[in-house]
């Protein structure tokens, strides 16, 4: 299978690889997938008190397309509001990276990672606000 140039670029020069401290103020962490399925993505979003994503980090165990999908979303989310980020759908990732049908699940996993990171942030921060 041939990879698109964008997948190769993200694979070779992944953006924002790494981790934030999980307990750091404003950090939401999402871990999705399972080792038995061949993909695990960890996405972390650093969100300002006003609800804007100011930074992101990822680590991914998975094929080249999974790595590229997670690398791409760390760029995509930066500067967007939590609501905008929540609205990102996997088709945006598929289009940007020209993923073939057999790799669509990588983009779905990336979308799940975003949602999981936001839920975690809400539980830690936003959740409190709702309760008060």
């Amino acid at each position: 299978m041939a990879y698109s140039d964008k997948v190769i670029d993200h694979y070779e020069n992944p953006r924002n690889v790494g981790s934030f401290e999980k307990e750091e103020e404003g950090v939401g962490t999402g871990v999705v997938g399972a080792p038995e399925c061949g993909d695990v993505m960890k996405l972390q979003l650093k969100i300002t008190p006003k609800g804007v994503v100011e930074d992101a980090r990822f680590k991914t165990f998975g094929c080249g397309s999974a790595i590229a999908s997670s690398s791409y979303i760390t760029e995509l989310v930066k500067g967007k509001s939590v609501d905008e980020v929540r609205g990102i759908s996997n088709t945006e990732i598929v289009e940007e990276l020209s993923l073939p049908p057999v790799k669509i699940h990588c983009s779905v996993l990336a979308e799940d990672a975003i949602k999981a990171a936001i839920s975690d942030w809400e539980a830690k921060n936003g959740g409190d606000k709702d309760a008060s």
Partner: peptide, 22 residues
């Protein structure tokens, strides 16, 4: 491995088999 969340977890001493992957 530097990019792998599993490697990071294993190095932190987390037993990957005991994790609930949902």
């Amino acid at each position: 491995r530097e990019m792998s969340p599993l490697y990071e977890m294993a190095k932190e001493g987390i037993d990957l088999k005991s994790v609930d992957w949902g």
